[in-house]
Amino acid sequence: MIQETLVTTVNPQGEVHIAPMGVHIDGDWRIILPFRPSATLENLLLSKTAVINFCDDVRIFAGCLSGRRDWPLSPAERVAGFYLADSLAHAELQLVRVEDDELRPKLFCKVTHTVNHRPFQGYNRAQYAVLEAAILVSRLDMLPPAKIQAELDYLRIGLEKTAGEKEREAWAWLMDVIEKHQSGAQA
C-alpha cells in the first residue's frame, strides 16, 4: 500500500525540508523512494531519520510543489527532526537499510514513535483532486501535456462540486505551476 504523506527531513545545517511523497507500507516497514537528486534522499542518508506527516490540509502538498514551504513545525519527540504542526498524526522514523538504485533508491525505515494529534474527519473529492493534481505537477517533465490536461479536466469536476477555500487556494497554486511550465515549454 502507498500512503500520500508529507515527509520532513533535516539537513546538517538544521534546515527542515518538507516533501510530498507516497510512502510504501509493507508490514512494519515504511519504504521511502525519493528520486535522485533529492533533498529528502540526502537528508535521510545523512541523519538516518525522517518524520512522516499525515495531513488533511492539501495546501501543504500544493504549497511544496509551488514554492510555499514555510509551514509551522514542532520538534519531534524521539528523533532529531520536526513534524508539521498542522498534521493529524505523525510517525517518527529511523533508517535501517538502503537498497541503492541509480534513479530511485529504496530507504527502509522503522517507526520509532507515532502520535495522533486530532481525529481524521475524511477527505472530500476536492482534497482528492488536489492530491492527484499535485502528483501530476510533480511529473510535468515525465507525462505528455495531453494526459495532464485530460486528468485535470476530470479532477476539476470533483473540485468544483466539493471544494472549500483551502482546496480552491491549493488548486490555484498548482494551476499556476502548470501554466508557467506550459508557457516555458512553448517559448
Rank of each mutant, 00 (worst) to 15 (best):
R59D: 03
D101T: 15
S87C: 01
S74V: 08
R69D: 01
L103Q: 13
V96C: 14
I60L: 01
N116I: 09
P75W: 03
Y83L: 01
K106E: 14
H90M: 07
S74F: 10
C55Y: 05
S87Q: 01
N43F: 00
Y83I: 03
D56I: 05
L45N: 14
P37G: 09
S74Q: 11
F61V: 00
H113S: 12
T112R: 14
L41K: 10
G67A: 02
V51K: 06
P75T: 01
C109E: 11
T49E: 10
D70R: 07
L107Q: 11
A39L: 08
V51H: 07
H117D: 15
G63L: 01
D70Y: 10
C109L: 08
D56K: 12
G122H: 05
I32V: 09
S47C: 05
A80V: 01
P37Y: 10
L103T: 14
C109S: 14
D100G: 12
G122Q: 04
I52W: 10
P37Q: 09
P119A: 03
A85C: 08
V79P: 14
H117M: 12
T40W: 01
T40I: 02
R104D: 01
K48V: 09
N53E: 02
N43K: 06
L73H: 11
I60D: 03
R36H: 09
C64V: 04
L73A: 07
I31L: 15
P75F: 03
E77Y: 11
E42Y: 14
A39F: 11
V111P: 14
N116G: 15
Q94S: 15
F54K: 11
L45Y: 13
T40S: 02
R97L: 07
R68A: 00
R97P: 07
Y83D: 04
L107A: 13
F54Y: 14
I32Y: 13
A91Y: 08
L45I: 06
Q121W: 13
Y83C: 04
R68P: 03
V96Y: 15
L44H: 09
S66C: 00
